[in-house]
């Protein structure tokens, strides 16, 4: 190699000074990529009063941290954040830039990519370095996995959902270099975040639920969807969905499992009325037992689960609910 390879960057995100798990997961993966490229891992974090938090980045595997610390950076401000990251990237020429596919990341990443004139890949489920030292970004699509590369432009940019990569083991003894970023003079902003309002999520969070029931287009209509929701209630499970169910308006986007949704890792997964599209199935990581209920015996889902029921879910699920109730009552009496 005649030229020193640029670093692997993670653009981290914080909410109320707390670093998001996805940012640390990406640093863990960045560490692996950096090792293969024989380069370093660097993290960009913008926020307020973040100085006490940055040790977490070192512990997760970062070698250097670019820290923007100012009250005006406390919450995501599109123009300020974009300006600072673009300027920094132009200066330091990273090889790779990874960003969590949160609402912020999903807006910020394309703004940065377009300004840097480079490519960007969404919803990657794996990232590897190929034989030519290029980042292969794997995405489930059209019944298989497609690999996307950005052969010439730099940095190679990708967004990744929380849970795709595991949490890195933290090494509290690791340290590194902190570069304090200059805060640009108040540019007259054309878009401003006035307020961020977050509510306590209702129900059991999908990401940490021991049981996940997921429904798909096979629900047929809102009545069918309610039947599936009933199954999740009796099991005290989190209710997930596929894109068609979201598109039909039966459930919210937040419940979508998979490549462009949430990643889950339950003990028990029950997929109801869904065909088993890879875009959905990649969202289920390391489930102990997986069950599918679908009226089409040829649905690909039956090649991806442990137990299959070929039946009309609208008929089968109400009976299953009754049987589970019986079982639960027996279990209590025993």
């Amino acid at each position: 190699m005649n030229k020193q390879c640029g670093s692997v960057w993670v653009v981290a995100e914080q909410i109320d000074c707390r670093i998001l798990p996805v940012s640390l997961q990406l640093i863990g993966q960045a560490r692996k990529l950096a090792k293969e490229l024989n380069t370093s891992v660097e993290t960009v974090i913008l926020g307020d009063q973040m100085d006490k938090r940055v040790q977490e980045f070192f512990a997760a595997g970062a070698d250097r941290i670019y820290l923007g610390n100012a009250p005006e950076l406390a919450i995501y401000q599109p123009e300020m954040y974009t300006e600072m990251i673009v300027k920094l990237a132009k200066e330091h020429q990273p090889e790779i830039m990874l960003i969590g596919s949160t609402s912020m990341g999903t807006e910020l990443a394309p703004l940065v990519a377009a300004r840097l004139g480079t490519g960007l890949t969404a919803h990657c489920i794996d990232l590897i370095i190929d034989d030519n030292k290029i980042l292969e970004q794997r995405i489930p699509a059209y019944g298989g996995l497609i690999s996307i590369i950005c052969p010439e432009k730099r940095p190679q940019m990708a967004t990744i959902a929380s849970g795709v990569f595991p949490h890195p083991e933290l090494d509290e003894s690791r340290t590194g270099e902190i570069i304090h970023l200059e805060i640009p003079n108040e540019i007259s902003p054309r878009v401003q975040t006035l307020e961020i309002v977050r509510e306590e999520p209702e129900g059991i969070p999908l990401e940490s639920a021991p049981i996940v029931v997921a429904g798909g287009a096979g629900a047929g209509d809102i009545e069918g969807w309610r039947i599936i929701a009933g199954l999740s209630e009796i099991l005290n499970a989190a209710l997930g969905s596929t894109r068609p169910a979201v598109d039909e308006g039966w459930t919210e986007l937040e419940t979508m499992i998979g490549q462009s949704g949430k990643m889950v890792s339950p003990e028990l997964y029950i997929g109801v009325g869904l065909s088993g599209e890879l875009q959905h199935m990649v969202g289920i990581v390391g489930a102990k037992v997986m069950v599918a209920i679908n009226n089409d015996a040829n649905a690909p889902v039956f090649e991806q689960v442990d137990y299959g029921i070929v039946d009309d879910c609208r008929e089968f699920v109400p009976m299953l609910i009754e049987k589970i109730k019986e079982y639960q009552e027996r279990k209590i009496t025993c």
Binding site: D130, E136, I148, A292, Q304, D306
Partner: peptide, 20 residues
């Protein structure tokens, strides 16, 4: 386009359903 599709792969599932 800065990005290109470089390769395609099929996915082998680690599970196969026992149909009840």
């Amino acid at each position: 386009s800065p990005t290109i599709v470089s390769s395609l792969a099929t996915v082998n599932s680690k599970r196969i359903a026992e149909i009840i």
